[in-house]
Amino acid sequence: MRINGLPPESRRDELTRYVNHSHTARVEDLADVFGVSSMTIHRDLDVLASEGRLERIRGGARAITARLAERDVRLRRHLNAHIKKQLANTAAQLIEPGSVIALDDSTTVGELGPHLESRRPSTVITHSLALMNSVATHPGIALVGLGGQYYAETDSFLGSVVVEQAQRLTADAVFVSTTAIKNQSLLHPDAEAALTKQALLKTGGRKILIIDSSKFEGSGLYHVMGLEEFDDIVIDKQLAPELLANLESLQLNIHLADTSPKD
């Protein structure tokens, strides 16, 4: 396969897809595929690595894996980005105009940011610094930022101070995501993140989970909450039929998002 004559941004998008598909790729092979010099590929890979879309390795690049991305929000924002956007498109319809909503620091929930102006909640509660910055640009939406110890790897505030602040608040709806679901429970690998999600969930009358099907049967050390305690789940249509049947048995409101790639 050869892909020639693309402008830089388009070439980098295609280069990212190529490496994600092949998992690893050498500079020389990429130069041949895209019909450019090795120096151009080196520059492209440096840009993509700085954006967190690929990982630089000696002589080439490799795809960002879920395990690696869990450690760095910059990487997580690019992992399954298309799926996250489509899930957010569906979840945004659950935001009632004039409501008070709480949003966690997950990159999936973070994709609700661009929808806030059109959905017009009265107030947003969040511990995500990225979402705080997004909400701050909308003067018609009040912002309640939960502060505490800042963690660059999640771009958010976590820990006991955040938990204490959340315990004094009430929201009409709370939107969360997590890294894994197993045995009909939300799991997370980080203790402070799990506690913060629990506290945020307790602020909401309506609990809404946004998650892609790849998170099912994953692993996580700390329990967040059982699925049966949620009111709604937004998930992609690729969920296995037997897992969908399990969700239906919990009598949740299930919202299926079409995450198939668009032509």
Results as ranks from 00 to 15, higher is better:
111 E>V: 09
113 G>V: 02
121 P>D: 10
105 D>W: 02
122 S>N: 14
132 M>D: 05
135 V>H: 01
127 H>L: 10
130 A>R: 11
131 L>K: 02
102 A>Y: 03
136 A>M: 06
116 L>C: 14
136 A>G: 05
139 P>C: 01
121 P>Y: 03
135 V>K: 04
121 P>V: 00
104 D>N: 15
103 L>C: 09
109 V>W: 07
113 G>W: 07
105 D>A: 11
115 H>Y: 14
139 P>D: 03
136 A>V: 08
140 G>H: 03
122 S>Y: 11
140 G>L: 11
116 L>F: 05
117 E>F: 08
124 V>A: 10
137 T>R: 11
116 L>W: 05
123 T>E: 12
134 S>L: 03
112 L>A: 08
135 V>C: 06
108 T>Y: 09
112 L>V: 07
125 I>V: 12
118 S>V: 15
115 H>G: 00
132 M>G: 11
102 A>S: 14
107 T>P: 08
134 S>D: 08
125 I>R: 08
114 P>S: 02
143 L>E: 15
132 M>Q: 03
112 L>F: 03
115 H>R: 03
134 S>Q: 14
125 I>P: 05
116 L>E: 07
126 T>D: 04
111 E>F: 12
108 T>E: 07
128 S>T: 07
121 P>R: 01
128 S>F: 10
113 G>R: 01
116 L>K: 08
111 E>Y: 10
120 R>N: 13
121 P>I: 04
135 V>G: 06
130 A>H: 14
108 T>C: 09
133 N>F: 06
140 G>M: 07
132 M>Y: 08
103 L>V: 15
139 P>G: 12
140 G>E: 13
111 E>G: 04
141 I>Q: 03
137 T>I: 02
108 T>V: 15
126 T>M: 02
114 P>I: 06
105 D>Q: 08
129 L>H: 04
111 E>Q: 13
118 S>L: 10
129 L>W: 05
102 A>V: 04
119 R>L: 04
142 A>V: 04
139 P>Y: 04
142 A>Y: 01
122 S>I: 00
